[in-house]
């Protein structure tokens, strides 16, 4: 092959210069981001092992212990965070709700990730008129009152979780499409893509093997920033009574139940709200931390 390339192949690869490792090194030194990551992992773990952690079921009612304050002793164990008006253990419901909220958030984000990346990559790859038309459509969609449509969808059709996250995902893909398009536009003119093309690779292989892996940074960053947005949307819909339905629980629904019992049992409002706000805070810190880790500026 090329003799020049064979002469010093190792010079390019300095040890420890892997971009992912570099990003992780910078991320590790970001205190809020690490705190957020640790909180998230801890909360997620609790949510996952929740059913084995507490002796109560999330829909198990106990009429004699309605709206018991935190720390009350129940039949099967202590209600650490108290109970709601039907005597259901709040801690159990909180962990169950957290799991559902995160599940919806991750699933909806994956839907938006898939649509956004596909759409953005195709628009940029085709270029020219098709690109212009496709991005014009995105501009138009930005101007629509989507939350209003989301409410309509949830009212009209059965309030299934599946529909909820497909609908949310279908709303949230627009910014991802713009970001991916910008990346692909730059990358598709680069020499290594040109080289792979001259070797006879098909467009789909070029995009999947060469272009997208090199846009991983922005995609990861924006994905983590989408998750809190989706959680917010899910909680908003559930708060209005249109999303997750009792006896199921999600953080938004628990906050809603807390509001109606605010006067007599404020802990029902307090704990779900704090859990929700801390989750959002952590997700945002992690997202910001990732952004700084992938494009260091200062």
């Amino acid at each position: 092959m090329n003799p020049v390339a064979e002469e010093k192949p190792t010079a390019v690869f300095l040890p420890g210069r892997n971009p992912m490792a570099e990003a992780w090194r910078r991320f590790r030194h970001n205190i809020p981001a690490m705190a957020g990551l640790i909180f998230l992992l801890g909360f997620l773990l609790l949510c996952l092992i929740g059913p084995w952690l507490t002796p109560f079921g999330f829909e198990e009612q106990n009429r004699s212990l309605g709206a018991a304050s935190p720390g009350t002793m129940g039949e099967a164990g202590r209600h650490w965070l108290g109970t709601d008006r039907l005597g259901r253990d709040l801690l159990t419901r909180l962990l169950h709700g957290g799991r559902l909220s995160f599940l919806v958030a991750v699933a909806a984000t994956m839907v938006s990730l898939f649509i956004g990346v596909t759409y953005g990559a195709i628009a940029a790859w085709c270029g020219g008129k098709r690109d212009a038309v496709m991005m014009r459509i995105v501009d138009l969609l930005y101007a629509l009152p989507f939350t209003v449509f989301l409410i309509l969808l949830m009212v009209i059709f059965e309030r299934s979780l599946l529909l909820l996250f497909i609908a949310i995902g279908a709303i949230e893909w627009l910014t991802m499409a713009r970001i991916v398009r910008g990346q692909v536009l730059v990358l598709k003119t680069r020499a290594f893509v040109e080289a792979a093309r001259s070797l006879g690779r098909r467009s789909s292989a070029l995009i999947l093997r060469h272009v997208l892996p090199n846009s991983m940074g922005p995609i990861i960053v924006y994905t983590t920033l989408t998750i809190p947005n989706v959680m917010l949307l899910e909680a908003f819909v559930s708060f209005l009574g249109l999303g997750v339905q009792a006896p199921q629980a999600s953080l938004g629904l628990l906050i809603n139940e807390g509001v109606s019992a605010m006067e007599s049992a404020p802990w029902l409002l307090f704990f779900p709200s704090v859990a929700f706000a801390l989750s959002l805070l952590s997700l945002n810190f992690v997202g910001d931390g990732l952004r700084d880790a992938f494009n260091p500026k200062e």
Binding site: P228, A235, F236, M262, L281
Partner: peptide, 18 residues
């Protein structure tokens, strides 16, 4: 500002009312 972004209306509103 970061705290403000993480306190959506349905969390902040009931809290302030309380």
């Amino acid at each position: 500002a970061m705290v403000g972004i993480c306190l959506p209306t349905f969390v902040l509103g009931p809290f302030l009312v309380y």
